[in-house]
Design a protein around this nucleic acid. Structure first.
Length: 854
DNA sequence: ATACTGGGCGCG
DNA sequence: AAAGCGCGCCCAGTAT
């Protein structure tokens, strides 16, 4: 009997968790390599504290006070920490130990570099080994990097804080939280303080026993077929119909290109949480058995990202999975909407302390190309390793599933179920894909290359670049914003009006447009075409296979519980710029003999906002079709009579004032944008809008800004008072509870700014109206065997590839579902919803389209 | 080579 | 005091 075929309860007494540990002995020269100890008063500080309660605190590095007193956490931040700990009857120096990521103080308290952290890590690890703490509390990102950074990449602290991790390598519990100095920088942030305190409290009071993960025990690997034991186990599944978690290893991300394969399958058992794993044997009987399992609706299936397994089953095995039951990735997202937490590796680490079991796979998963259709190198992995890896994945998927079922409240489960159903319908959408005109794409790509070359030559011949060449060594690169910055500020002596997020001078579209020279116009032209070619055309060409591209539609990525789309992103194809729209959207075409239909909800977010705030003025606007909230604000802003408000003027008022204000902007920002937007606008009678304002005593920007301030004041303090009070209330709620709950069953947590708190629920719930409708329509389409396809979704719109015969029926159904059924389903929708529609010509393209009545 | 950040820009 | 939200993807530049 080969070792791998031992019965899975075979008494393996050894601890099987034996991922080879890097033994990092502190090298003598690490301190010399770092050199920080030269520059401080208390170099190479020893850990301190009595550690009576066996808790080790790891902070970043010593500050001025610490360096002076040769003791950790004695400065202002340390005092804040002590204050909170005292509330928990915990004395830092007596009950805990203290250490830092760095033993020496960096000059001026600057943030330690990754290199310094790495050099000092062996020292810290040595201390952990020596002290054998039961718990480690990590204060801030640098501490997390120091303790976890060599095993997992730490990009932000946000997703780590508040986790309670039974770290298997260190054999102790790890509790990351913020650094107290982060609280000092934002003293009025009540939520931050509450979170910090609750993290400390939970860590100090934590009394769960530390469970060792023996993740290889019981894993059953099969290398050959036929195999009696495997046959027996698969048949047992068919007989007893348990809930299973399954996982594939495959040759790539998308299965559609020729030659892709599913390499192996693992199936985890509900009761034992153990896995069986085996390659896809090329044998009829085997394949039949697998098919029976995967298509049995009574066998509940769990997966981490079910969309992936569903997609590969369709395309490689040729049938549909029946009995989808749970998606641990979606559930992880619903339970915690912070960014980047729902991957299986992260979940496995924070829940079970197991980390790095994918390390020997990683080099083989790397694909040189961004193309999702390309092949990875998993076929080169020794089968033994690949099978083990696959088995561990499904095992932890099962464990996660069971834990999530316990954590999921009734309320959150409603939200989860919506996403789960949506995900299942998106499986169809992604399988169908979107038809593109590949020939056109290649032609346009060449054409754009020529245009870009011409523009490049013109730009290079300009006096501006001549000046650059005289003063700088490096060749001028139009795509380098740093070089543009340098050119404009240092060589051309311009004063750029706008700063980037990090406080540098911005050279974005708005700034360049305001400079308005021949040179900046060329640059803008170039940038636009470059984007069209590099992002859109290139993406469509790269991702399409035989004229079909299959964007992903995801429900696990966003803070707001909206969807996202990638590979390629179907949700940001140019529309506002007419030339960009034409070039890009001409490539998107219906199937033969069909046309595209796009149905949008009209002003959905405003309607959903009204459902939240129940502002009577807003509701009245939305109920009474003879009124128009944007027109009224245009009248206020530009001192116009009702019949003087043109479509363009209304558009500007809507986008640069009403929406901006609703999302939390304020009059200065609005006034600036409005002043820019109305520059070329005229009244019906040809009088420029700015002339009209002038004759009403608004002759320059500063009087206009003061006027907008007045209109803003009226907007919030006279008109939408209830809306204003709702904003106050929801902010107060968030400060009290640390999260906000949406009408569609979701909970948004984590650190949020004021404006986040208002917009997340509105944005999310708006999309959920669309998602609910999408689910119904796709289910109806399947039930009624439509030949037309739902091919995509853009937040508040649905795109259908329509067979002309079915058009009338589809129109009626879509309108009924989107406007009526959804209101019957959710009685919190207290305002009427309406839709508008556009169609392309039969065998036309997504650029040539016209509005229709629906 | 690879990973990450910053700036920029497309959409709702 | 702070002042619009949410995404994904492109390139340049830097660190490792």
């Amino acid at each position: 009997m080969k070792e791998d075929n031992l019965p899975f309860f075979w008494p393996k007494t050894e601890i099987i968790y034996q991922k080879p540990k890097k033994v990092e002995k502190p090298k003598k020269d690490n301190c010399d390599l770092c050199g920080l100890f030269y520059g401080c008063q208390s170099p190479k500080m020893h850990y301190n504290g009595e550690g009576k309660k066996k808790i080790l605190f790891v902070a970043e590095a010593n500050g001025a006070q610490e360096d002076l007193q040769n003791n950790q956490l004695v400065g202002e931040a340390g005092q804040l920490l002590r204050m909170h700990l005292r509330k928990l009857k915990f004395e830092l120096d007596e009950d805990g130990w203290k250490d830092n990521a760095l033993a020496c103080r960096p000059e001026n308290n600057r943030t330690p570099t990754a290199r310094e952290i790495a050099l000092c890590r062996p020292r810290l690890m040595e201390n952990i080994k020596l002290l054998k703490p039961e718990k480690i509390i990590l204060l801030g990102k640098v501490a997390v990097q120091a303790v976890l950074g060599d095993r997992i990449s730490i990009t932000s602290i946000g997703k780590w804080v508040g986790q309670q991790i039974p770290d298997q390598d260190l054999q102790c519990w790890i509790f990351p939280t913020y650094h107290p100095s982060f609280l000092l920088r934002d003293r009025d942030n009540l939520v931050l303080e509450k979170l910090f305190y609750s993290h400390l409290r939970d860590a100090i009071n934590w009394d769960h026993p530390f469970a060792i993960e023996y993740y290889e025990v019981g894993t059953r690997r099969y290398y050959e077929w036929p195999n009696e034991d495997l046959q027996y186990r698969l048949n047992k599944i068919l007989e007893t119909k348990p809930t299973i978690a399954f996982d594939y290893e495959t040759t790539g991300i998308k299965p559609h290109a020729n030659g892709h394969e599913i390499l192996c399958i693992s199936i985890a058992d509900y009761d034992t949480e153990q896995s069986i794993v085996f390659p896809i044997f090329k044998d009829e009987n085997f394949l039949e058995l697998i098919k029976k399992i995967l298509t049995d609706p009574e066998i509940n299936k769990v997966a981490h990202n079910a969309k992936f397994e569903d997609c590969w089953t369709r395309f490689i095995l040729g049938y549909r999975v029946q009995g989808w039951h749970w998606d641990t990735m979606l559930a992880a997202h619903v339970l915690d909407n912070r960014e980047g937490i729902c991957g299986l590796k992260f979940q496995t680490y924070i829940n079970y302390g197991v980390i790095g079991y994918d390390s020997f796979i990683k080099p083989y998963i790397v694909s040189k190309s961004k193309n999702c259709n390309h092949f990875n190198r998993l076929k080169e992995v020794p089968l033994k390793d690949l099978l083990l890896y696959c088995a561990i994945d499904s095992k932890y998927t099962m464990k996660l599933y069971k834990r999530q079922k316990e954590l999921m409240s009734v309320r959150l489960n409603k939200g989860y179920q919506l996403l789960f159903e949506g995900m299942l319908e998106f499986c169809d959408t992604e399988a169908i894909g979107i038809r593109v005109d590949d020939e056109y794409l290649i032609k346009q790509d060449k054409h754009l290359k020529k245009r870009l070359d011409r523009l490049t030559r013109k730009i290079e011949a300009s006096k501006e670049v001549e000046l650059w060449d005289k003063n700088r060594d490096k060749k001028f690169n139009i795509n380098s914003s740093k070089m543009l910055q340098d050119l404009f500020i240092n060589l051309l002596d311009y004063d750029l009006s706008k700063k980037t997020l990090k406080g540098n001078d911005s050279t974005d579209k708005e700034v360049l447009a305001s400079l308005d020279t021949d040179f900046t116009r060329l640059i803008l032209d170039y940038k636009k075409l470059f984007k069209i070619r590099g992002t859109y055309l290139a993406g469509f060409i790269r991702e399409n296979i035989d004229g079909i591209m299959r964007p992903n539609f995801n429900l696990h990525t966003t803070r707001t519980f909206r969807s996202s789309s990638n590979a390629v992103n179907f949700q940001n194809i140019p529309r506002r710029d007419i030339e960009a729209q034409r070039i890009c959207r001409r490539s998107i075409i219906p199937r033969l003999g069909r046309f595209l239909l796009e149905v949008d909800y009209s002003g959905l977010e405003v309607h959903i906002a009204a459902c939240y705030n129940k502002d009577p003025v807003l509701i009245e606007y939305l109920e009474d079709e003879t009124t128009d909230m944007h027109r009224d604000e245009a009248m206020n802003l530009f001192l116009l009579e009702e019949d003087q408000v043109t479509k363009e003027i209304r558009f500007v008022a809507k986008n640069s004032f009403v929406f901006a204000e609703f999302y939390g902007s304020y009059f200065v920002e609005c006034a600036k944008n409005l002043w820019r937007d109305i520059d070329s606008l005229k009244l019906e009678n040809g009088i420029p809008l700015k002339e009209h304002l002038k004759s009403n005593h608004i002759s320059n920007y500063s009087t206009f800004e003061a006027h907008v301030a007045n209109v803003e004041d009226m907007l919030w303090n006279e008109k939408y008072i209830v809306y204003r009070d709702w904003k106050k209330k929801i902010w107060a709620d968030y400060q009290k509870t640390g999260n906000i709950k949406t009408l569609t069953g979701f909970r948004c947590g984590g650190l949020m700014k004021k404006n986040d708190v208002f917009s997340y629920p509105i944005q999310g719930s708006s999309f959920h109206c669309l998602l609910w409708s999408f689910i119904q329509l796709n289910q109806i389409a399947k039930k009624e065997s439509w030949k037309s396809y739902l091919i995509g979704q853009i937040h508040d719109s649905i795109i259908v590839d329509v067979v002309p015969d079915e058009f009338e029926h589809i129109k009626k159904t879509v309108k009924r579902v989107m406007c009526e059924d959804v209101r019957n389903h959710w009685n919190w929708i207290i305002v009427p919803l309406s839709v508008s529609a556009e169609v392309t010509k039969t065998d036309g393209n997504w650029y040539d389209k016209e509005k229709i009545e629906i």
